[in-house]
């Protein structure tokens, strides 16, 4: 008769416990894997400068797109606004927009902006060459700073889209946190 505590059973339990542990670690390993996968495939590429491909470099002067700029803060004592609320641009035309942040508090605050686009698939057609969101921003007490965003909306944007919104939200980073990169 096979005994409940026979060596074979205990060995099997050890193997299975090890496997369980490996799968637990695998769950965590999915996080860097997911990020790497998004990076390699270019999905979710929000916080990295884009490079303009030469062949796409033409301006569709026939077409106008209204771009609305939105700015929010969450949980940090800053004022954050674009210097212009909207712009009318041609697809393919490089645009620079200035944003202003002001630290209203008496302490140094570190923040980083996370973008959000409407419509959602705008990220496929929006190329950003420069953005304050690529790095963390450190503001001394009562400091004010103006920062540019430089971008092109590619002419490939579907023809039925006439208005797009580019939104940024500033979040506070803890002291000593490094820039968020994605």
């Amino acid at each position: 008769m096979v005994n409940g505590n026979s060596k074979a059973n205990v060995l099997m339990m050890k193997k299975l416990l090890l496997f369980t542990l490996i799968m637990f670690v695998f769950g965590y390993a999915l996080v860097p894997f997911y990020e790497k996968f998004c990076e390699v495939t270019g999905i979710n590429n929000l916080l990295k400068p884009d490079v303009l491909v030469k062949d796409d470099n033409w301006v569709d002067e026939e077409r106008w797109i209204a771009v609305e700029f939105d700015a929010n803060t969450r949980g940090l004592p800053w004022q954050f606004k674009p210097l212009q609320r909207s712009a009318r641009i041609h697809p393919g035309e490089p645009v620079t927009v200035m944003y202003e942040i002001a630290n209203n508090s008496e302490r140094e605050v570190i923040g980083q902006a996370i973008p959000s686009y409407s419509p959602r698939f705008l990220d496929k057609h929006l190329k950003k060459f420069e953005c304050f969101c690529f790095t963390k921003q450190v503001l001394k007490p009562n400091e004010t700073r103006q920062m540019p965003v430089q971008f092109v909306i590619e002419p490939g944007l579907p023809a039925d889209i006439n208005t797009v919104t580019i939104s940024y939200t500033f979040f506070e980073l803890p002291d000593g946190a490094s820039t968020i990169k994605k």
Partner: peptide, 21 residues
């Protein structure tokens, strides 16, 4: 044993997101 540990990891991540920064 293949997927339950992954769920345990997921809820642990949720817990540390909620309380441990």
């Amino acid at each position: 044993v293949l997927v339950m540990p992954v769920l345990a990891g997921t809820v642990t991540m949720l817990l540390t997101d909620r309380h441990f920064g």
